[in-house]
């Protein structure tokens, strides 16, 4: 497991970016709290925080990319990045697991228990979807075999195009790499667009009881991850155009690909547990 080389492990020189990142999150959180409590300065403070965060991301990733191009990550460092990305994705898995857990809980335990409490909620029957016994909303769930099924197809296809791009990279076929990436990005954007359209035409919101809450929390966080993944793919496309990746060394590409497949798998679970069942 240990890939020990004679070169010393690369320890970067002191860097200002972590501190900038902390200031960014502090500002962002302060602004958000002010915004939530209807303070006029809130949105401006938040925007400032987001701006600092972007600045930090450009600066930090800029550093990493130039170090990578300078060949500092050739040995043991590469293994560190791989381990790191895997554990990061594991933490994301647990984040979604929490929300899925909430969904399973309300469907199998919470709502049936409310239906048992007939003295408090007379006439309420356990069913799914539901907006709960105290709200009078009727929930019309999304038909799984419409846009969601189409979106499933789109994401699965995007997984294929991304793998195809990876094959191109491994074989040194740069044009296949770029074309595959471009197609993946296009499919990602198409997915986001369709999901957006679905949100617009839906006749329930996240305020409509537990169904609305779990639906929007799960699909919303997933959609956010797709957006993030698409942005990452775009960065990778630009780096491919700049010729950053070699057939034998292209960890950044692989990391984004892992992330994209993770987002893909989450969608499959969503499709089954949120849309079909």
């Amino acid at each position: 497991m240990q890939t020990h080389t004679n070169n010393a492990y690369y320890v970067p020189p002191p860097s200002i970016w972590p501190l900038v990142g902390s200031i960014a999150l502090l500002t962002l959180a302060t602004g958000f709290a002010l915004l939530l409590n209807k303070t006029a300065a809130g949105p401006y403070v938040m925007a400032l925080g987001a701006g600092i965060l972007l600045f930090m991301l450009f600066g930090w990733f800029g550093n990493v990319i130039s170090e990578s191009l300078a060949g500092k990550y050739a040995g043991q460092e590469d293994a560190s990045f791989r381990w790191g990305m895997m554990w990061f994705i594991f933490s994301e898995v647990m984040f979604f697991a929490g929300f899925f857990g909430a969904l399973f809980y309300v469907r199998n335990i919470g709502v049936p228990m409310l239906a048992d409490a007939q003295s408090l909620w007379p006439g309420f029957a356990a069913a799914w979807p539901t907006a709960g016994p105290g709200l009078k909303t009727e929930i019309m769930p999304v038909h799984a075999w419409g846009i969601p099924a189409l979106n499933t197809l789109i994401l699965l296809t995007s997984g294929v195009t991304l793998t195809w791009a990876h094959w191109g990279l491994q074989k040194g076929k740069q044009s296949q790499l770029k074309l595959g990436l471009a197609m993946t990005i296009a499919l990602g954007i198409l997915f986001i667009g369709l999901q957006w359209y679905e949100y617009v035409v839906l006749d329930f919101t996240l305020r409509d009881g537990i169904f609305g809450a779990t639906f929007f929390m799960l699909t919303g966080f997933h959609g956010f991850h797709v957006i993030l993944g698409t942005v990452m793919l775009i960065v990778i496309l630009f780096r491919s155009l700049a010729g950053h990746f070699k057939p034998e060394r292209h960890f950044a590409f692989e990391a984004v690909a892992w992330y994209w497949h993770f987002v893909d798998v989450v969608w499959l679970l969503l499709f089954v547990f949120v849309y079909i069942l």
């Binding site: 539901t130 105290g134 169904f211």
Partner: peptide
């Protein structure tokens, strides 16, 4: 976490 809306 609000029973009225089906939460717990």
């Amino acid at each position: 976490f609000d029973a009225a809306g089906g939460g717990d």
